[in-house]
Design a protein around this nucleic acid. Sequence first.
DNA 1: GTCCGGCTCCACCTTTTGATGGATGCCGGT
DNA 2: ACCGGCATCCATCAAAAGGTGGAGCCGGAC
Lengths: 234, 234
Amino acid sequence: MSQNKNKIPNDFQRKGLELINSLVSLSESVFFLVEPDMQHRGAVVFDSRSDIEKQYTTTYGRMDPLNPERFSDTDDLVVTLDSQMAAHLLKQTIYYQEFMVPNNHRYVADMFFRHEGQIIAVLSMLREERLGNYSEEELQLLRKLQPFLEYSLKSVYLPKRHKERLSIYEKYGLTERELDVIELLLSGTSNKEIAVELSLGLATVKTHLHHIFQKTSVQSRSELVAKVLLDLQS
Amino acid sequence: MSQNKNKIPNDFQRKGLELINSLVSLSESVFFLVEPDMQHRGAVVFDSRSDIEKQYTTTYGRMDPLNPERFSDTDDLVVTLDSQMAAHLLKQTIYYQEFMVPNNHRYVADMFFRHEGQIIAVLSMLREERLGNYSEEELQLLRKLQPFLEYSLKSVYLPKRHKERLSIYEKYGLTERELDVIELLLSGTSNKEIAVELSLGLATVKTHLHHIFQKTSVQSRSELVAKVLLDLQS
DNA sequence: GTCCGGCTCCACCTTTTGATGGATGCCGGT
DNA sequence: ACCGGCATCCATCAAAAGGTGGAGCCGGAC
């Protein structure tokens, strides 16, 4: 229904999705970052129920024929599911039966973004049956879009994110993990959501948070958000 | 001990206090706005326990010989307590005995800021006995500082505050009272503190907040802070 | 090897927040 | 005179957040 219901920053991902969706018909699309350890991060979903992403992350991601781990060594810009596997074989897989069918997906194309050979982000485009498969023209268009998106991602978004983490680190001496937590916190994410996003226990999130509160001398998450957001913009 | 422990924006007040404290010796100082209904608002305290301000607001403010209500019709820039009342009389007052003595205050000078004849803010300067009374030279210095502080207050800080309220109002259609609440919320204030600051019941704060959440479509205060703060800076 | 910091998790508890469904008085417009 | 929006307040409940004092594991420093 509505555009999406996602976290506040990640503007880059949202704008990118808007662009793609304005150029090709999709029933759904997802833009996520890939950490060096291949964990997905900060998924922004366009036009979709949000629990689908959790499903994917927890259970089905590892079965995905388009899992970015399988494309680290290639230099494909855009890959369709059907190019990887014959339709009749695909339809026999658990991945197709238990994940794609229930979510009404039939055709998939993934756009990969790389840095020094490593995949750092993926823009996943999903179509239900009635939209038909991606045409060669559409794939060509997508492949032309990829370089600029990759350029922006690497020259604008990632440096900005890195700069913010660095700035917080320098000011408050937070550890890497605490920075992961505060980054999500600053976009208004709840403890439970942070736990899911970082694959942590709720207790662990609270512990990190407690340390963050001490290091920044605040008494609550909203005071923290207010304080740090003002720090960052000045 | 530490500089102060106050709410995040109010930078103007803090900077003003820093200036004053760098020029004259004070044991404590407070900068607050005065609403049209003469309620004090957004007090920023320099070097002090913070509950003193609550004490003043709830109980002793109305007895204060330097209460701004008494100076609406004057054009005094800086007024000392001793200029209003002979020392031996002052020492007999409940205000002196129950408020000033326990808080270790002896000398007071208030700097008033007016707009169209109405007092809109007060910078209150407090000294313990050992610092001695304000000298005529110090008062002259303070009277020279007043015009620039008043200029900055009226030309920079208040318009900025007004602009922010207006911008939030236009975007989300909040009511006046809801704007009061969100303003404090955005500086990381808890519900209880908001209730005290606005002289409201906790229940009322929650009600306003609930309405704000609906109008801004967020599910929690920290998400609201993140969202609105980003709105404002862009 | 030992020690320490960082990361993870746990149980237990209190406080705060948020949701719900009321109630009242006020004011301004129709 | 009535209605709607606003502001105020209430009780009750559930969920989330936060504090405390642990524990185990790891990897690097000493």
